[in-house]
Amino acid sequence: MTRDVTDCAIMLGAVAGHDRRDSTSIDIPVPDYRAALATDISGLKIGLPKEYFIAGLDPDVQTSMDEAIATYRRLGAEFVDVSLPHTDCAVATYYLIATAEASSNLARYDGVRFGHRSAAAEGLITMMTQSRSEGFGPEVKRRIMLGTYALSSGYYDAYYVKAQKVRTLIMKDFTEAFGNADVLLTPVAPTPAFALGEKTGDPLQMYLSDIFTIPVNLAGTCAMSLPAGFSAAGLPIGMQLIGKPFGEETILRAAYAFEQATEWHTRKAVI
């Protein structure tokens, strides 16, 4: 989103805050994020969730994370092991809740008011079905179908309601982990960046690439990713810092200290 942490702090300051036209936004004061940026992080307790450092992690990603941990140790941070036991449910949970919401959110693209309207259609039903069939791409259609299924009568409890219950467990995982740590450090993805279109043939594999970023979205807490190295093939590797709810100042400060101590944010991938 931005080129460096300072820009990120400035931008967040501009967009954060209560929006009275959004019932889900919270009315609390917006801190001065830029003022929070500092290089002194001595005593900062960084948690390493064991479920995110698994055997299947790409070796280059592992190396970058090891180096990042070493950098933080030099800067005076302390490390603790934490556990987010429901991590393995996160992708399934997310793809039930997000697709359910998407199936409903995208219902308004029915060709009546906006979006594509099929030229071929004659009656109301054909206008709606053809407009949607022609207008949406394969990934969107797949998600609409998944979400519609998850909400259907007879499946709602088994899928959507269960996913919401697991979501609560995932939130609890984070609350407990933050009992011991100020921030959590994890890779952004299990592998370095993959090529455009490389995984579209196997959507499930593609969805699993999001395994480390999805739990944060379900938990509703804050996180940011920043450059932390490159693979042997020269592809970028990201590090994720996860904060407590409304802990943006802490993760920005941790990110800023790392950025000041490293050069990754100045390098570009070879394409």
Partner: peptide, 14 residues
């Protein structure tokens, strides 16, 4: 809750 169904007088589709 959202009650989902398609009809031209229902702009959000729910």
């Amino acid at each position: 809750a959202r009650k989902n169904y398609f009809y031209p007088d229902l702009p959000k589709g729910y």
